[in-house]
Amino acid sequence: MGKAALQWTPEMLALLGTDKDAVLAQRWGTTAKTVNLKRNALGIPAFGWVQWTPAMQAALGTDSDAELAKRWGISKASVVAKRKELGIASLTEKQGTGFVWNDAAVALLGTASDAKVAAQLGVTRLTVYNARVARGIAAAPRGVAKPDADDAD
């Protein structure tokens, strides 16, 4: 004999679209497909679905993806996906780091912590990290810092 049809209660119907179909299905002892079919039949958008307004789309790339996600109450992944779908560069891609990696700056990579090199060069730790990794330079061993020229005797 087949499994009895799920009896949908008003409480269950009210929860459709408020969490992932699979999560609700597990809670109710059914399959995600059953929940998905019911939600779609009622025209309820999936959990996490975003109704992109023209204003939201216009804001993409004008602030960090994380800040926009926080502002709109959605995931950063949703913001990144929509921005990429529309071919819009991220704020950091538009701005670039503005830092030119000359030989002297590159020579500092891996000689001290990324944070210390960043402070010395006036850039972010992430900028130093990315530059170091892109060049295949290992991180400085922990506790080892390049002595300042003033400290040499």
Rank of each mutant, 00 (worst) to 15 (best):
M56L: 06
T127W: 02
L68A: 09
G17M: 03
A77S: 14
L108S: 05
W101K: 11
K94L: 14
N40V: 13
D150P: 12
A112I: 06
A55P: 03
A112F: 06
A118F: 11
K38M: 07
G96K: 12
A119Q: 14
A152Y: 15
L37M: 03
A140C: 14
G98Y: 06
R132L: 03
S113A: 09
G96L: 12
A149C: 07
A139C: 13
K70E: 02
W8T: 00
K76Q: 07
L13F: 03
S75N: 10
W101E: 06
D114Y: 08
G136R: 09
T18W: 06
L86Q: 07
G43L: 03
A14P: 02
G61K: 08
P147I: 10
A107G: 04
R39Y: 00
A77T: 13
F47R: 10
A149D: 12
D150V: 15
L109Y: 07
P147T: 06
G122Y: 05
V79E: 01
A41Y: 07
A149H: 11
W49I: 07
T30I: 01
A152I: 15
A118K: 10
T127Y: 05
L126V: 11
N40H: 09
L42C: 08
N36D: 10
R142T: 11
T31N: 02
A140M: 09
R39A: 01
V35D: 05
T111V: 06
W101S: 14
L13T: 15
G136S: 11
T31Y: 05
D21H: 04
A59Y: 01
G48E: 00
F47W: 13
A104K: 08
K94N: 10
R39V: 01
R125V: 11
Q120N: 08
N130I: 02
A89Y: 08
G143P: 09
V23L: 10
G136D: 13
S90Q: 01
N36V: 00
V106L: 13
M1C: 03
M1G: 01
A25P: 03
Q7H: 15
Q51N: 08
D65P: 04
Q120V: 01
A41W: 02
Q26H: 11
P45S: 10
G122T: 01
V100W: 03
G96C: 09
D148Q: 14
R132A: 04
V80R: 14
I44D: 00
V100Q: 02
D21N: 12
V133C: 13
A134K: 15
A131I: 13
Q95D: 01
Q120S: 08
E85F: 07
A134V: 02
A32Y: 05
A105E: 05
P10A: 02
L37D: 09
G98R: 05
V79W: 00
V106E: 12
D19E: 14
S113R: 10
E85D: 14
E93N: 05
L13I: 15
A131H: 08
W49Q: 09
R125Q: 15
I137P: 00
